[in-house]
Each structure stands twice: as C-alpha cells, then as structure tokens.
Amino acid sequence: MTQDQQTGSRGGRGSGAPGAASRWVQRKMNARTNRKIRRGRGRFMGMDLLILNTVGRRSGRPRETPVTWFTDGADTWLIIASGGGSQHPDWYVNLMAHPDRASIELPGREAVAVRPHRLEGADREQAWQRIVDAQPRYAKYQSKAEKEYPVIRLSPR
C-alpha cells in the first residue's frame, strides 16, 4: 500500500513510503517466512512468529503477514504494531478495518479465528512490560519512535 496512513498523502520520493521494488521484496520475504511457519519453524531472532490473516481494508483481498507474538495466557496472543515507528503497518490498518475477518496460524497448526482488542492504559502497560521483559529490543525500538506502538491482544473467536 502506498497510502501514508498518517497524512493520507501518496507515497513518493522522500515521503518515506516504500517503493514498488521494496514492496515486491517484502512480499517475497513474507511469503518465504510464511512457508517456514507453516512447516513448523516459526522463530526469528529468538522471537516466536505467527501468520496474521487479514483482509485488505480497501481491496477486500486476503493478506498474510508474519508477525512476532508473545503469550498472554492460554490461547491468547499479544502482537505489536510497530511499522517502523512513523506510521501504522498495513496489517494493523487492515485488522482494525475488518476485525471480524481475522485469523492466525501458529507454526504447524490450523488457522484460528481471532478477535483483536487494542490494549489501552494499565492493560497496555502490563502487556508492554511482559513484552519488553521477554524481548528488551522492543523497548529500544519504541524509544526511537515518534508514536506509541499499539499492542493488540488476540483471543479465539
């Protein structure tokens, strides 16, 4: 998607929006990672990965995105919408636009329909603390960002 979620302007040179070539590379990398997750190998840099299935907010087409996740109790998962710090990632925008059509795939398992809930206030702070305790790199990553990253709890639907 070339649409800048923050300003609504079209991406172009100097706008920070990825070009067609980098989007193509990202799609190829995501597809490769998704294949690994489906074969039961869902780890990257010491973090667990899942496949987040969403629907494009404008296109209505299915989207599959590998995302790091953290446990939040039995059958509940936490994900972070970092998107490089300046704008929300496409998967987050799609998830919030069509929350009733979301599902996840954990390594080697069937898809599970999920209900996303963006955490706020004390709930977010508690979840965020568990995340940075498990992966301190997220605290460093967040400190360099212009905005607070949304934390989303996914629970089975």
Rank of each mutant, 00 (worst) to 15 (best):
M1P: 05
T7V: 14
G12H: 08
G12R: 10
S15R: 10
S15A: 10
P18T: 11
A20G: 09
S22P: 00
R23F: 05
W24Y: 06
W24V: 12
V25A: 15
N30Q: 12
A31L: 14
R32D: 14
T33S: 06
K36E: 14
R38P: 01
G40R: 12
R43P: 00
R43T: 15
F44R: 13
G46W: 12
D48Y: 00
L49A: 06
L49M: 10
L50H: 00
L52K: 06
N53L: 07
N53Q: 10
V55M: 05
P62F: 03
R63M: 06
V67H: 02
T68H: 03
T68R: 01
A74F: 02
D75N: 10
D75T: 07
T76I: 01
L78T: 04
I79S: 02
A81Q: 03
S82P: 02
S86N: 07
S86F: 03
V93S: 04
V93W: 01
N94W: 03
N94V: 01
M96Y: 05
P99T: 08
P107F: 05
G108P: 09
R109I: 08
R109P: 00
A111I: 10
A111G: 04
A111R: 14
V112A: 06
R115T: 15
H117N: 11
L119K: 05
G121E: 12
D123T: 08
E125S: 11
A127E: 04
A127N: 02
W128D: 06
W128A: 03
V132T: 15
D133P: 04
A134H: 06
Q135Y: 14
A139Q: 14
Q142N: 08
E146R: 08
P150G: 03
P150F: 05
V151G: 00
I152G: 00
L154C: 07
S155I: 07
S155T: 14
